[in-house]
Every structure is written in C-alpha cells, then in structure tokens.
C-alpha cells in the first residue's frame, strides 16, 4: 500500500568502494594461465597477466564525478589471493580512517567517527557493488574473463595506427549482461588502451580508458583507469594508482578485524 521512498537499498559505500574493489580486482586478481592458439586470446591473456598477483599493496586515488557532487578519495589497498582485501581511506578528512575488510564472503566496515565495526549482511554485500559506475561482476567466485568469452580480432572504422582491436563475446548461459566488449591494445606491447562495453542491441553502455603507463617494480601497467558510463549523464569515475607493489611479503594480521580498528 505504501511506496518506499529514498531510492533502492544500496550499501552507502557504493560510491567509492565498488569502483575501488572492481579496480583492485581488475588489477590484482589472479586469473588462470591459458595456452591458446588464437592471437586474440593471447592478447587478452597478456592483458590479464598484467593484473595477476598473489599479493599486492597500493596507494590509490579515486575521483568520483556525479551530476550532484565530485569527490576525490585517497586510500591504501591490500589484497591476498582473490579472497582477502583490506582498504583504508586516508583522505578526505571526513572519511579518514574508514576501513573495509573482506574475507571470502564476509565483509566488515569500520567507522572511526562512531568507533564501530559493522558487519555487512550478505544481501547488502551484493548491493555494495551496485549503484556505482561499475557492475556487480566483481565479487562472484568463479569469475574468469578468459574462460567466459570468445575472442576474435576485428577491424573498426577509423582505426588508429599501431593499435589492435579484439571483440569479446560472452559464451551463452553465463551470467554476463553485456552483448559484447571490444578491447583496444597497443600493437607493440599489448598495453590496453580502452575497453568498450555494449549491450546486445549494439548500444555502447560504458567505456573504460587506460592511461599513463608507469613502472612499478618489475611491471609496466596503465596507472589511470577512467570509467565513463554512456547512459548516465555527468558520471565518471577515475582510478589512479600512485604506488603499487606486487607479490610482496605482506605483514601478518592485515586481513583481521583487529586491523580494522587500528587508528592511523
């Protein structure tokens, strides 16, 4: 009988956690290696490998731009395998000290202002990846890009010099909303330039742009990721990796509840 006000039930950390987690996942989640004949798949595999690591630690900045506000968050992110993630916000001051811990299917937030640890219920955990410019594909267990798509080299109108284009079409029956994804990489080193996500009718829904390749340790990776939704006016998210280390020896006790409460 009554209409529910206030919009859908999103986890409020939506605005920054989900693009963050997605970005982290994208950068540091372990994908299985694959031996494949086709060049397309090779290229994608290489891109995949760019972001594989058993452990990682990074200093990250994120700009979130919406029609109503703009913010920039700065945070530390640690990850171990694909199950453990720890994030602590450093800036802005209002959110300084807020931390999130994820172990497998459980997630907790720490809020220094109230000095409370909140457990996120499983239902909200799903929603925590919602509502931002990113989808909820991130947090599901058996997600593997390489296994889920067919790959083929394509040519586009007005191709750029020295750039290869790949079309990724999802295999039928898999839980993917996209009709297809096109990826552009540099021919010389297979560095990703952009990814475009289309629905089944061929409408461009969102675009991810990779910029500013830098060297962190032994890797060269694009350190700036821009995600631009094409169906929502005035929204954009930019992820910037200021520092990053891979396959490092992490301190013990990072992925614990006690660590959540630690004041900076």
């Amino acid at each position: 009988m009554l209409t529910k006000k206030g919009g859908s039930m999103k986890n409020p950390l939506t605005g920054f956690i989900s693009p963050l987690i997605f970005g982290t996942f994208l950068l540091f989640s372990p994908f299985p290696r694959y031996q494949e004949a086709s060049q397309a798949k090779d290229i994608v595999a290489k891109v995949d490998e760019l972001y594989r690591a058993d452990t990682s630690s990074a200093l990250v900045e994120m700009d979130i731009i919406t029609p109503h506000w703009q913010r920039t968050l700065k945070m530390n992110v640690w990850s171990e395998g694909k199950d453990n993630t720890f994030i602590r916000i450093l800036e802005p001051k209002k959110e300084q000290g807020i931390a999130t811990l994820r172990i497998k299917n459980e997630m907790w937030n720490y809020l220094p202002k109230t000095n409370k640890v909140m457990k996120i219920p499983p239902s909200m955990m799903m929603s925590s990846w919602m509502g931002s410019d990113f989808t909820n594909d991130d947090l599901v267990k058996e997600f593997t890009f390489l296994e889920s798509y067919h790959f083929e080299m394509i040519t586009i109108d007005n191709p750029e010099k020295g750039v290869l284009y790949i079309k990724c079409t999802p295999k039928e029956g898999l839980p993917i909303v996209w009709g297809y994804i096109t990826v552009a990489v540099q021919e010389k080193d297979y560095m990703p330039l952009w990814q475009k996500y289309y629905d089944e009718k061929g409408n461009l829904i969102r675009e991810m742009i990779f910029k500013e390749i830098k060297t962190f340790g032994k890797r060269d990776i694009p350190t700036v990721l821009e995600l631009i939704p094409k169906n929502k006016e005035g929204n954009k998210t930019v992820l910037r990796y200021l520092e990053a280390q891979f396959d490092l020896q992490l301190e013990r006790g990072i992925f614990t509840l006690r660590n959540l409460r630690k004041r900076l």
Binding site: N105, P122, M126, N136, V140, P175, I176, E200, N231
Partner: peptide, 25 residues
C-alpha cells in the same frame, strides 16, 4: 533496467549455508 523481451539480465543471490554469491543469466 531499460530491458525488453529477450534482453539479458543477471540475477545475483546468496546461496544457502555457504553464503557464496551466485549469479545466473
């Protein structure tokens, strides 16, 4: 959702007992 007949959607739910998230198209 801006979908019509025949369009793809993905449903995410939490599985019983394990708490794992399950997705299906």
């Amino acid at each position: 959702l801006e979908v019509g007949i025949g369009d793809r959607t993905v449903i995410t739910v939490t599985q019983a007992y394990s708490g794992d998230l399950v997705q299906e198209m």
